[in-house]
Amino acid sequence: MVSMKDIALKCKVSVATVSKALNDHSDISQEKKLIIKETAKEMGYFPNSAARALKTNRTYNIGVLFVDDANSGLTHEYFARVLEGFKVEAEKNGYDITFINHRIGVRTMSYYEHCMYRGVDGVVIACVNFNHEEVLELINSDLPVVTIDHIFNNRIAVISDNVKGMHDLVEYVYQAGHRKIAYIHGADSSVTTDRLASFYRTLEELNVEVPDEYIREGAYHDSQKAEELTRELLQLKERPTCIFYPDDFACIGGINVIKGLGYRIPEDISVVGYDGLTISDVLEPKLTTLKQDTSRLGREAAIHLVNLIEKPRTALIERVVIAGKIQLGKSVKEI
C-alpha cells in the first residue's frame, strides 16, 4: 500500500508537505499541491480511514437500523426504495453506510454497542419497534440520529404525510359514491395511528358512519393476514362496498380472496392500497393507491443526518413531512 512517505520521496518533499497538500492547506502553493496530488493519484494512494478518523474525529460512516416485523428485509419494496434514496444522498456527501445488527462474529451486542464498535458518525432508524429498549438506548444516546416514519421529541423525524394521504384517499372513494367503507389497517405504530385517525376524522366530516366491524387490525406487508380479514368482511350481513388495505402488498391477499369467492373488482367490491409500489401498476385491475415519495423520504433523512453530524450547533430538531399523491387505477367503482 502506498503511503505519504512514498509520495514524499518521489516528489522530494517532506511528509508534512504531502499531508498539507492532500488536505488543501493554504500555506502550500497551488502548483505544488497539483504536483503532489497528481503523483498520489498515479501511485494509487488512498488515505487510511482509521488514520483519517483520528485526525478528523469522523469516520464518514453512517449506521442504518432497519428491522421489519415481516422479516422481508430489502425485499420490502417501500423501505428498499427509501433506503436507496438515503444511500445515494449519503454517498454523494462522502459517507458509507453500515447496517446495524446484534452480532459481530460470535459476539452478541446491543444496537448502540454495534454503533460504537463500528464508530459510525450517526444513525438512521427505520421500520423497527421504536419502543424497544435497545432502540430507545440509541435515541437517548449522544449519537446523531434521524428517524423515518416515527417521531421522538428529541430527534429529527422524516415522515410521510399519512394524515393527508389517508384523507385524500377517503375523499376520493367518497366522491365515487361509496358510504360502506372498511379499513384493514396495519399493526400498532405511529403510522397506523395517524392513518386510522385521519380515516375516522375524514368520514366524520363527510357524515359517514363507520361500523366497528368494518375496522380490522392486520399487519403491514402481510398478504395472508389480509386474506383472512377480507374473508371476514365479505361474510358480514352488510358487507362494505370498498375495502382499504394497509399497503399494496397486503392488498394482493385481499384481491385473491375476493376473486376466489367469485366477486369482481370493482364491479362487486372496490379495493384501495397504500404506498404506490410497482406491483400496483401491474395488478388487474390496476390498483388505486396512495403513492408515497419514497426516494425523497430517504434523501431528506440523509440530508438532515449529514447536517446534524457536520453542523450540530445549527441543526434544528424538526419534523420533516413529505407529501404523497393518489395514483389512480381502476379498482374503485363509481356508484
Score class of each variant (00 low, 15 high):
L261D: 08
F244Y: 11
L277A: 01
L233C: 11
E318C: 09
K330G: 02
E232K: 15
L328A: 09
E232Y: 08
P246M: 02
L283P: 02
S295Q: 14
K259T: 10
P266L: 06
D281G: 13
A302S: 15
D248Q: 04
L261E: 14
P240W: 04
V257F: 04
I326P: 00
E238W: 05
S280K: 01
A323P: 09
R239V: 04
A302M: 11
V271C: 07
K237C: 06
K237T: 14
E318L: 05
Q327W: 09
I317N: 12
T289W: 12
L277W: 03
C251V: 04
I326A: 04
T289L: 09
G262W: 00
R239A: 07
D275V: 03
Y274H: 03
S270I: 02
I322L: 08
I279M: 07
V272D: 03
E267C: 02
E310R: 07
F249H: 11
G262D: 07
K330C: 09
H304E: 15
T314C: 06
P312N: 10
H304S: 15
V257W: 02
L229T: 01
D247I: 02
T278I: 14
D281C: 10
I309H: 05
F244N: 05
L297A: 09
V272R: 01
N256T: 15
I317C: 13
K325Y: 10
T314G: 05
L287E: 11
L233W: 02
L234I: 09
K325Q: 15
D268E: 01
E300M: 13
E227N: 11
A315C: 12
E318I: 06
S270F: 00
A315Y: 08
K237P: 02
E284G: 11
N307E: 14
L234F: 02
A302I: 08
P285G: 03
G260F: 03
E227Y: 11
S295T: 15
L287G: 04
L233S: 10
I258S: 05
A315L: 05
E267W: 14
P285I: 00
L277I: 04
L297V: 12
H304N: 15
E318S: 13
I322A: 06
A250V: 02
V257C: 03
K286N: 06
N307P: 03
L308W: 09
T288S: 14
F249K: 10
G324E: 03
P285M: 03
L234D: 11
I326K: 05
P312V: 07
P240G: 12
D248M: 00
A301T: 08
E228F: 12
L283I: 09
